[in-house]
Design a binder for these strands. Structure first.
Lengths: 212, 212
DNA sequence: TGATTAATTAATCGTCTGATGAATATGCTA
DNA sequence: TAGCATATTCATCAGACGATTAATTAATCA
């Protein structure tokens, strides 16, 4: 059953399988609870292969983060490079379009938030910095002009509200969501975008009343 | 410098110091990263005292959770036992009054959400169950009567929004908050309660228009 | 074909961790 | 004051973990 030592025939996908295992396990458990042996056995290989491909456990983690978030950052850059002001309605829709296919990412972010001292999470924070900056910039586009806010609304608090509304559904425990009959399907995210847009547009922003 | 073996003179507060160390460390780092030796040295004592007072590392964690959340659950019970319907404005105010003095608790909840398999977090989930049920019940009081909602607003999504708005400020990384000039002071929480109340009352709920 | 490089397993090393037992000194009570 | 319960340090054990090396086999290329 166990393969013999030595290079196996054919092409190797061991590296990819390690990355995949890392993505699954590091999302589900804290860094220290994921042992190299567990990673290896999940990938159907030997723990020494981590050294071979990534030098370190930390190296595997780093590669996983970069290869996972690279495409996402690219999407963010494209959205930011598009000229013109982003309307608050589009903001939520875009956000859920981008994040929908990656429901695990907020969890990784959250882990890095909860344990900011550890070196592996400082990496996550660095990789995410651009993403977060982009998000805040997008939100700022809609919020930093006071004329868009209802009278008496604090822009700072409004920003906090937007982030909370956007992020929470992804970090809430699936059990809690399920007990509310919620499943993070594309259809649900569409409804959620509409709901959030309605919530903030009627609660925070001036309603663009047809007769001025 | 190092004390000799044997019972020291005077009363002992070692147990309390261990609980305190546990609260600090388990909030700041994941369970596995907090070693018994670290806990002990933080409490200025020996790791064997954990066995003496709490049997286990897990036992220390459990006692810390129970002694920390016990008073909070009591407050929640009192609020729930008060007759009459809770208005949405009071809901946020009450919530921040209760949570304000315990800014660490949401982080512990979050950790348990992110690693629901581990035994120590199943405990947290169990201890928190009543608290969460209470919160959901309070929110439900305000939401389950459809006549309180604006036309076309989904009660399910509205509940999710309320939870997200209420919880996020506590779980957001202090660094992120600080970069926005936010500090979780009592004054800020008061402003936040007013802000959230305004957000949902004008965005989700019917505005009690003076002329009907 | 022979030599070099690539990919893998197996065995092992030192370190840290949680747990435990033994020894020791104080406090309390009869 | 004798004796038992209380509270503490210290030494140590077994297990897991990350890391590393040696051995082994396949692919590549001269």
């Amino acid at each position: 059953m166990t393969a013999l030592p030595g290079r196996p025939k054919g092409d190797s996908d061991t590296r990819a399988r390690l990355i995949h295992a890392a993505r699954c396990l590091f999302v589900a458990q804290p860094y220290t609870k994921v042992s190299t042996r567990l990673l290896a056995s999940h990938a159907g290989t030997n723990a020494a292969m981590i050294r071979y491909y990534f030098v370190d456990k930390a190296g595997l983690f780093e590669s996983m983060i970069k290869e996972t978030f690279g495409p996402l950052l690219e999407q963010m850059r494209q959205i930011l490079s598009q000229p013109g002001e982003l309307k608050i309605a589009e903001l939520f829709t875009r956000y859920y379009q981008v994040m929908g296919p990656h429901p695990d990412l907020p969890k990784l972010m959250l882990r890095s938030m909860l344990d900011p001292q550890s070196t592996e999470n400082r990496l996550v924070a660095r990789v995410f910095a651009e993403f977060m900056q982009g998000a805040i910039q997008l939100i700022g586009q809609s919020l930093q002009q006071p004329q868009h806010l209802q009278q008496g609304v604090d822009a700072q608090l409004a920003r906090l509200s937007l982030i909370g509304l956007a992020v929470f559904p992804f970090i809430a425990p699936p059990q809690t969501l399920r007990s509310q009959g919620i499943e993070l399907s594309p259809e649900f995210l569409t409804r959620l975008a509409q709901h959030n847009q309605r919530l903030v547009s009627q609660g925070i922003f001036k309603t663009a009343s047809p007769e001025s």
